[in-house]
């Protein structure tokens, strides 16, 4: 096919629109000046260094990171069996369950946060940390179900049936035949869920409490009263972290297929 120059030009423009702001935030974060500006007033790592010294941000990072890993594992534990059942076992009520587990995708986060705080966390007397963990897990289940189901769909059924015919129990067949073959799907689900939880704002906004705050919430709060480039520097750091993850994931398993 012929490459049409205008198509390429349009593509470059779209990419610039998508990635330009990110480049700007990196530039602003590397500024040597006192205030947030672009182009930056000279280059330095001083704000990157400064932002790493802030206790509350470090603590919030630890909370966000551990929350993201734990809720992702929880969502995988719930999602993998459900995806397998939906794809292979044709259970009664599959349609309803499919709709149910994908529901968190269409409901606005603010609403979820409010509903969970008022009618789940407070009536049941759930602590702040378990509440955050449970809400994030519920939010991530749709992602794990969808991605794992998609990779199961690409896996031929007969391998597994062969294993069962040869005398393996369904569980053994799943662990030794199915699991290795959908490993990429599971890893993709893990990365997608991790990033979704790590960047989550509205739900956590309602459920966070004394001593427990997540990184994006702390960032939003600091944007309200800091005018220096420190949050830009932090944004740049986080973005670089994401890029590293995405690059590795794309190389290894073509993550974008699952988004």
């Amino acid at each position: 096919m012929t490459m049409r120059p205008w198509a390429i030009a349009a593509l470059v423009a779209v990419l610039l629109f998508l990635l330009g702001p990110f480049l700007i935030i990196v530039g602003a974060g590397l500024s040597a000046g006192e205030t947030l500006t672009f182009p930056p007033e000279g280059l330095s790592l001083r704000w990157v260094w400064a932002v790493l010294q802030v206790d509350t941000l470090r603590h919030a990072f630890a909370i966000s990171f551990s929350l993201a890993v734990l809720s992702t594992l929880g969502a995988l534990a719930l999602g993998i069996p459900a995806a397998y059942a939906l794809e292979r076992l044709d259970p009664p009520g599959a349609g309803a369950i499919r709709a149910l587990v994908t529901a968190p995708l269409v409901v606005p986060g603010i609403v979820v946060g409010l509903a969970l705080l008022r009618y789940f966390v407070i009536p049941l007397g759930i602590g702040i940390r378990p509440a955050l963990l449970m809400s994030h897990t519920a939010l991530l289940v749709p992602y794990t179900v969808r991605v794992v189901a998609a990779s199961l769909r690409n896996l031929r059924v007969d391998i597994e049936e062969a294993a069962i015919l040869l005398g393996a129990s369904p569980l053994t067949a799943f662990v030794s035949v199915v699991m290795p073959n959908i490993r990429n799907g599971i890893v993709a689900a893990f990365i997608l869920s991790f990033i979704t939880s790590f960047n989550q704002v509205p739900v956590s906004l309602f459920l966070a409490g004394p001593g427990v705050s997540t990184l994006p919430i702390e960032m939003l709060a600091r944007i309200d009263f800091t005018y220096d480039p420190s949050i830009a520097a932090l944004s740049a750091l986080l973005a670089l972290l994401s890029i590293a993850i995405v690059f590795v994931a794309e190389r290894l398993l073509g993550l974008s297929r699952y988004v």
Partner: peptide
């Protein structure tokens, strides 16, 4: 790793 992260979180 999971045990450590649970400790950090809880």
């Amino acid at each position: 790793a999971v045990a450590y992260l649970s400790y950090v979180f809880f």
